[in-house]
């Protein structure tokens, strides 16, 4: 591990004048699955958007494979192998399944490859090629959005709330795919509110609360602190 795939240095950002993230440092190496956990409103999704260049940080630097991404547009980032699957809507609901696959070719991979990988992996989608993606079940929609991670051969995968609204068994299946991708050397940054599912596959984890990573470590070390962070069993005040 010479240069980390993704490196965040002291990221400070927010909305309007209200700061959301107060100085985040984070590194992601090849084959890492980094689980970023924490309650709602802690700034997890904001951090992910900083990584995907959808939000310009006020201060701090995002580096991909050692190169600063300052001034790079999100669509350019997608072409150099950073695949971002945003929260909830990783698909275009008013396009058909196969049209959704066509959209993935913008990253540079050809349609035939994407189609064969997708339909091999998720045979149930191949029967619904002409169906509008918005009418698929929640699990199928998430499979479709994962198809982009599988089919376009990225270096870095950014996942936001993969499990949202899905049955645990499907979530488990999806995370197995994530684990396989990581084995091929992809670095994965996962944002999750539903912590346990991801801790099974993660190699490292961090808890983000009020814009700061309050603790970082192996999944096992963190699991005990989580229930506190969420339900405030030992509440303050």
């Amino acid at each position: 591990m010479d240069k980390p795939l993704l490196q965040l240095d002291n990221i400070l950002t927010g909305y309007g004048t209200i700061p959301v993230l107060h100085g985040i440092d984070l590194t992601l190496a090849e084959g890492d699955i980094y689980a970023l956990l924490g309650p709602n409103g802690g700034g997890k999704s904001t951090l992910l958007k900083v990584c995907s260049r959808q939000i310009e940080p006020w201060k701090g630097n995002v580096k991909v494979a050692g190169r600063s991404m300052e001034g790079v547009a999100p669509e350019e980032l997608a072409k150099v192998g950073v695949c971002t699957i945003p929260e909830g809507k990783g698909i275009f609901p008013n396009l058909t399944v196969s049209e959704n696959l066509v959209m993935m070719t913008h990253s540079g991979t050809d349609l035939a490859t994407i189609e064969s990988i997708t339909y091999d992996r998720f045979p149930q989608l191949s029967n619904k090629r002409k169906q509008l993606a918005g009418t698929l079940s929640g699990g199928e929609q998430q499979m479709l959005s994962m198809a982009r991670a599988l089919g376009t051969n990225p270096k870095i995968l950014l996942l936001d709330e993969l499990s949202m609204g899905l049955a645990p068994i499907i979530v488990k299946e999806l995370y197995e795919i994530v684990a396989q991708l990581a084995e091929q050397g992809i670095g994965v940054l996962v944002v999750e509110q539903f912590a346990r599912t991801v801790l099974g596959v993660a190699t490292r984890a961090g808890i983000l609360i009020n814009g700061k990573i309050i603790s970082e470590g192996s999944p096992n070390e963190l699991e005990d602190q989580l229930s506190d962070a969420y339900l405030g069993t030992k509440g303050k005040i």
Partner: peptide
């Protein structure tokens, strides 16, 4: 609009502009 990538992208922009960017198209 339904048989070319350009047209499909135009419709995709209507659905979700940010996601179009994340797919790698301006």
């Amino acid at each position: 609009l339904s048989n070319t990538r350009t047209g499909i992208t135009m419709r995709a922009v209507v659905d979700n502009q940010d996601l179009v960017r994340l797919n790698g198209s301006n």
